[in-house]
Design a protein around this nucleic acid. Structure first.
Lengths: 266, 266
DNA sequence: CGTTATTTGTGCGTATGTATT
DNA sequence: AAATACATACGCACAAATAAC
């Protein structure tokens, strides 16, 4: 047999043929990719393990080989598998465990899994030429807030955020950002992603060393001028609209930044 | 007309029909992706500009619409374009200019575009339990070297590298790594990529702040203990074989690390 | 050594769905 | 309502790499 193929000269595209009990539909290839991703992250496919072939998956999932290929394209792009012609598809080493899976925007959003944030300066209107410039605004008006991030009640990071006025308005009713001292596990970027019409797809980071400014040092309980890791992040939508500038100072004694990089073409 | 399509019931795959004067072939969709990528990086498509439609590209490049789609899939994965159903395909903002295009392994290889490296400690066999452990070796034997990276003859980074013995052997005949004081524009990772059988596809980074160790400080001409940006990089092949550990100390006054992050699924 | 079977890679045609204009 | 444009899905043919024989 050449491909898979029962007969069906032209597949009706229908929501996606196969079963789908609860959740929303998604597409066939995404569903398959989700399944495989789960297997990879859960170590059901250990490091280096060979995954089923395209033909096998096409049979068991009752989809065409092309659909299987489409699913694998995403997994390759995510660095979860690598493929070798004539040999097969293999689970990429090191699934997750103690290592941050991959430097992605979603990672930044889920930073809060085992940390909490405590608001130290509530969201309010402000004039800031520099921040407005970096956000690409015409005027100098921004909205800004500041908070600490804690791990086991110990502060390890101070973050200040600046938002375009319109974007800040959408967060006006969020108590986590308006009541001084509020403790929560939200992230600003997570809140924005739920409220903005366009999803946040890009983040630009700049990482360097800085001397802790007075106020930051006071809140982090270190001496002013103590060397800290400074990370600036500028978030944007796919269309390039900049929606948040965040400047964080991390205590290096308690934090190191990890990323995993992949190669471009394949 | 539904798709593109002249007739040709079953396309002969042939090297790829169209023109190709000099270089090696590649595939049709990669060639198209290369062309579009060049146009995007060169600002021929400015920020937010709308690119030709799938149908248009299929016509002008004499390929099927599927092939155009395949090319766009890569560009989307690279974050160079974003697509909106019913509207079109758009150049992602901020092509390159003063900003490092994207945090990828290739970036690290081409770090040397406007910098030079000067060998301060030639490649030689050595015992190092820690490095061997991080490289996943059974024995404690490694090969190691150290060098400075210069910009305008000013050192801004000190790097030490450790290699598994077998990997180090492949670099034995490279004068840039064996003659003390040698000045060049190579990168260790670039040299390895040319010589190893398997390509290097992964790099894992850890970034933190450190006090400059004595020897590093002396070579960077700063006081010992000066706060510096420390970046550890562990390179591996797709199969997970670790081939190089590099520990770099950057003078933060002259260097900041920039990365651009993209969102996972789309 | 070549032959063959397996497995992924490339290219194309087609049909249909959905979002936007 | 219609046209445009991207998204999904399927099928097919052949190429190229790999491994087993």
């Amino acid at each position: 047999m050449t491909d898979s193929g029962t007969a069906a000269p032209a597949g009706a595209a229908a929501p996606a043929g196969a079963a789908r009990a609860a959740g929303r539909a998604r597409s066939a290839y995404r569903g398959l990719a989700d399944d495989l991703r789960a297997g990879l992250l859960s170590r059901r496919y250990p490091d280096g393990a060979r995954l089923p072939t395209e033909a096998e998956l096409a049979r068991t999932y009752q989809v065409s080989r092309q659909t299987v290929r489409r699913a694998f394209q995403d997994l390759v792009a995510e660095g979860l598998v690598h493929r070798v012609p004539g040999r097969g598809t293999f689970a990429a080493p090191r699934g997750s465990r103690y290592l941050r899976q991959f430097g992605s925007v979603d990672d930044l959003m889920s930073l809060s899994v085992d940390t909490t944030m405590r608001l130290s300066s509530p969201l309010r209107r402000q004039i800031d030429v520099d921040a407005a410039g970096r956000l690409g605004l015409d005027s100098d008006v921004v909205q800004s807030a500041a908070f600490l991030r804690l791990h086991d009640d110990v502060p390890f990071c101070h973050t200040a955020v600046w938002l375009p006025p319109g974007v800040g308005e959408t967060l006006r009713s969020v108590p986590e950002l308006t009541e001084c001292g509020a403790v929560s596990t939200v992230t600003v970027i997570g809140l924005l992603d739920e409220r903005l019409p366009a999803p946040i797809t890009d983040a630009e980071q700049s990482i360097t060393v800085a001397a802790a400014p007075g106020r930051v040092a006071a809140e982090l309980r270190c001496e002013p001028g103590h060397p800290v890791l400074r990370i600036d992040r500028l978030y944007a939508t796919a269309a390039g609209e900049r929606v948040e500038l965040a400047v964080s100072h991390f205590l290096p004694e308690q934090y190191s930044y990890r990323v995993r990089l992949r190669r471009g073409p394949l």
